[in-house]
């Protein structure tokens, strides 16, 4: 049974946000197509092979990368493996509860994972230790520290930034010197929330709480689509989906500059 982690918001608040949106406004004064301030800090966890803390407004997430040696998957003996998890610990929100990951956290992790995997950001074919026998497994663990909306984009950005500066810990495994984790060009995730007839980018907490539908798209450096996910019980028209992707292509360019600049 799905226990909603994001508690419902009062009907009054919902009416207020929808009324504002009809006038083209958002509660925090942003434009519909405006992200909150994004900051990225790298290499902040010494024990991790790579790490990054990303803030989008008041949302703060920490991604840590650990590598281990394991067996390759039978269907890809010549490739390393990756795994992505998201934790929503009670420290990040009064609505989060301790315990194993709930569907919300699993969905976020899997959408972030697909963006990274499908854009071939981690060069898994270069993570073979002994072909068919031993490969590196990259663990991407995303800890939400402060939840004020839009964990899809914050988590994806933190994961990408952490991978960008990660190392292969050869020394710890007696395999010689550490070397940089081989990565290509990161996916950029862009998330929209729909409430009333408004579709806003980078939803804040209250906007997420009133949202009827959510849409996330991960774009590569050419603006091609690598992953998408529609969420929540609302509906999108085909035109709305296409619009979202076109809007995301502009945002992704700006976010990419932050990440690569």
């Amino acid at each position: 049974m799905d226990i909603p982690e994001v508690k419902r918001i009062s009907a009054v608040k919902k009416d207020y946000l929808i009324k504002l949106a009809k006038q083209g406004k958002r509660a925090d004064g942003r434009e519909f197509d405006e992200y909150r301030k994004i900051t990225i800090e790298r290499n902040i966890i010494k024990k991790a092979e790579g790490s990054a803390r990303v803030k989008i407004g008041n949302t703060m997430v920490l991604a840590g990368i650990k590598l281990d040696i394991g067996e390759p998957y039978p269907d890809s003996p010549e490739e390393g493996a990756m795994s992505t998890s998201v934790e929503l610990p009670p420290l990040a929100s009064p609505d989060f509860e301790p315990g194993p990951p709930k569907p919300d956290a699993i969905e976020i992790a899997r959408v972030i994972d697909r963006g990274i995997r499908e854009s071939k950001y981690i060069k898994l074919d270069k993570l073979v230790v002994e072909p068919g026998e031993k490969v590196w497994i990259v663990f991407i663990d995303i800890h939400v520290l402060d939840y004020d909306g839009n964990l899809f984009d914050a988590g994806s950005l933190a994961a990408s930034a952490a991978l960008q500066n990660a190392v292969i810990p050869n020394e710890r495994f007696g395999l010689g010197d550490n070397e940089p984790l081989p990565v290509g060009s990161p996916p950029i995730s862009c998330t929209f929330a729909k409430f009333g007839n408004a579709i806003v980018v980078d939803p804040g907490l209250e906007e997420e709480q009133v949202a009827e539908a959510r849409f996330t798209v991960a774009l590569d450096e050419n603006g091609d689509i690598r992953a998408m996910q529609k969420g929540l019980k609302g509906r999108f028209t085909v035109e709305e989906i296409k619009n979202n992707i076109n809007r995301a292509q502009i945002h992704a360019k700006n976010i990419r500059k932050l990440l690569e600049g």
Binding site: G223, D224, R226, A227, M228, K230, T237, V238, K242
Partner: peptide, 26 residues
């Protein structure tokens, strides 16, 4: 989809599509 209105109820995607290919696939 909701066939009457063609509204999208579920949409997921993984892989690699250009925007043009996406329009065609959708």
């Amino acid at each position: 989809i909701a066939p009457r209105t063609e509204e999208i109820l579920l949409l997921q995607m993984d892989g690699h599509l250009t925007y043009k290919e996406f329009e065609e696939a959708l």
